[in-house]
Amino acid sequence: MSKKVSRRQFLTYTLGGTAGFLGMGMLFPMIRFAADPMLKKGGKGAFVKTNYKEDQITETPLSVDFRVDVKDGWYVPEGGEPRTAWVMKSEGKILALSPVCKHLGCTVGWESNPQFKGEFFCPCHFGRYFKNGTNVPGTPPTKPLDQYETKIEAGHLWIGPIKKA
């Protein structure tokens, strides 16, 4: 027993298939346009020269502002995106820590709470970090602060991308 397709069904299938084909032809460029920034490979982060000289860096954390060239999709901020790092000397090396708390992404401050001297403090949920960036056990953050790569060239501090853990 064969099942016959009526003229009406044939016309419906043909028009539906054609509409689907034309719709995909219009939809594909839109999807490609939206997804294009995600498909491009990002470049390796470059080092950025700061306004600080090596002799200005001490064992006391210093807030250092710098700008990084970033491309967010098609938007490229003029002059770069502002960033900050806590920079200090630790065990003879220069340590640059990200001020972004690993718990909720708030900004940590050095000795910003009088109760916790010698520690970084996050006001959002009382997150605390030791001077070397490791989290204080029993406080909300479960990971240490991110560290930036650093180097000294011609006596000036250069800050690079965040080190991969």
Rank of each mutant, 00 (worst) to 15 (best):
A19V: 15
L22W: 11
M24A: 12
M26S: 05
P29M: 08
M30P: 01
R32I: 07
F33N: 09
A35S: 07
A35Y: 12
D36E: 13
D36R: 05
M38C: 03
M38I: 10
K41V: 05
G42A: 12
G43V: 12
G43L: 13
K44I: 11
G45L: 12
K49V: 15
T50M: 13
T50W: 10
N51R: 12
D55S: 10
D55W: 07
I57T: 02
I57Q: 00
T58Y: 05
P61D: 13
L62W: 05
V64L: 08
R67F: 12
V68H: 03
D69Y: 05
V70L: 09
V70A: 04
V70K: 07
K71P: 00
P77A: 00
P77H: 00
P77G: 03
E78I: 10
G79E: 09
E81V: 01
P82W: 08
R83I: 07
T84A: 10
A85V: 10
K89H: 09
K89T: 14
G92P: 12
L95T: 00
P99V: 05
P99Y: 02
P99F: 02
V100F: 02
H103K: 15
H103F: 14
C106K: 06
W110P: 05
W110N: 11
E111C: 11
E111V: 08
E111F: 04
Q115F: 09
F121T: 05
P123I: 04
C124L: 09
G127C: 02
G127S: 01
G127F: 00
R128A: 03
G133N: 07
N135D: 06
N135I: 00
P137S: 06
P137N: 06
P137C: 06
G138V: 12
G138F: 11
P140F: 11
P141S: 02
P141I: 05
K143R: 15
D146L: 09
E149V: 10
T150C: 09
T150W: 09
K151S: 03
L157H: 04
L157I: 08
I162L: 15
K163V: 15
A165H: 14
